[in-house]
Nucleic acid binder design. Structure first.
Lengths: 100, 100
DNA sequence: AAGGTATATCGGAAAATCCCGATATGCCAA
DNA sequence: TTGGCATATCGGGATTTTCCGATATACCTT
C-alpha cells in the first residue's frame, strides 16, 4: 500500500468520479447492461463515454487507479473490465486512522 | 470538506511526513520542548528544520494543509503553532467508507 | 523609533500532471 | 489473413505543482 501513490491517484476529479460511478454500475452504465453483465465490472469504452474524455486519457486513468490498487481489471476477449477493489478502500480508511 | 483539496494536500511526501511528525511533538520536536510546550502545536521553524526545506516552502505546505482542514494554527506572539485537526482525519476515514 | 526574529507572500525555474491525437497491440469475425 | 473493434502506449503542448531566493509583514525588545 503506497500511501503517496494512492493519494495522487485520488487527486483528480475525473478519477474520483470514475470510482464513484463504479459503485453502482447498474445505475451509471445502463448501456453495458444491455450487452453484458457486471460480473467483472465495467468496460473501458463505457467509462470513457461517461467521462467525456478521450479513450487514451481514460485508459491511462484506469491504469493509474489500478497501480494504486483501487481497482482491479479483467480481460475478456477484446474488452477490459474494471471494478472497484473494496478491500483497498477499507484498508485506506483504516490507514488514515492509524498511519497518517 | 473538499475531497479533491484534501487528497491533493496529501499527495506530497513532505506534507505526509509533517502530519506524521505532528502526531508526536514530544518525540519529533525535542528542541521546542525546551522553550515552549505543545499546547498549541509546533511552530513553523521547528517543522522547517526537521523537513530540511526552506522556510518559505514549509510555510506554504502548512498553509496547504490548513486550507484542506487537516491542521489548525494558533498565532502566539511572533510564532505560529500548527497542530493536527484530528476531527478532519476521522471525517476523512468515514468519507472513504461512504463517499469515495 | 530601530533592529532582530518568526512567518507569510511573491516571482519564477524545473519537474510533474493533465489530456490530447496518433499509433501500436490484441482479439475476433469473415 | 484481412479488416474491424477495444484497449494500451507513445509523443507532446498546456497547465499545475514543487521548491527556491527575495522580499514583505508582524511582533518583540531595547
Amino acid at each position: 500500500m503506497d500511501q503517496l501513490e494512492i493519494f495522487k491517484a485520488l487527486s483528480n476529479k475525473t478519477r474520483l468520479q470514475i470510482l464513484n460511478w463504479l459503485k453502482d454500475p447498474d445505475l451509471n452504465f445502463p448501456d453495458q447492461k444491455e450487452h453484458a453483465n457486471f460480473d467483472h465490472g465495467v468496460c473501458v469504452g463505457q467509462i470513457q463515454i461517461k467521462a467525456g474524455l478521450t479513450q487514451s486519457t481514460v485508459s491511462e486513468y484506469l491504469s493509474t487507479l489500478q497501480r494504486a490498487g483501487l481497482v482491479k481489471s479483467t480481460r475478456v476477449g477484446q474488452w477490459t473490465y474494471y471494478q472497484r477493489n473494496e478491500e483497498a478502500f477499507e484498508a485506506l480508511s483504516k490507514l488514515i486512522q492509524t498511519d497518517i
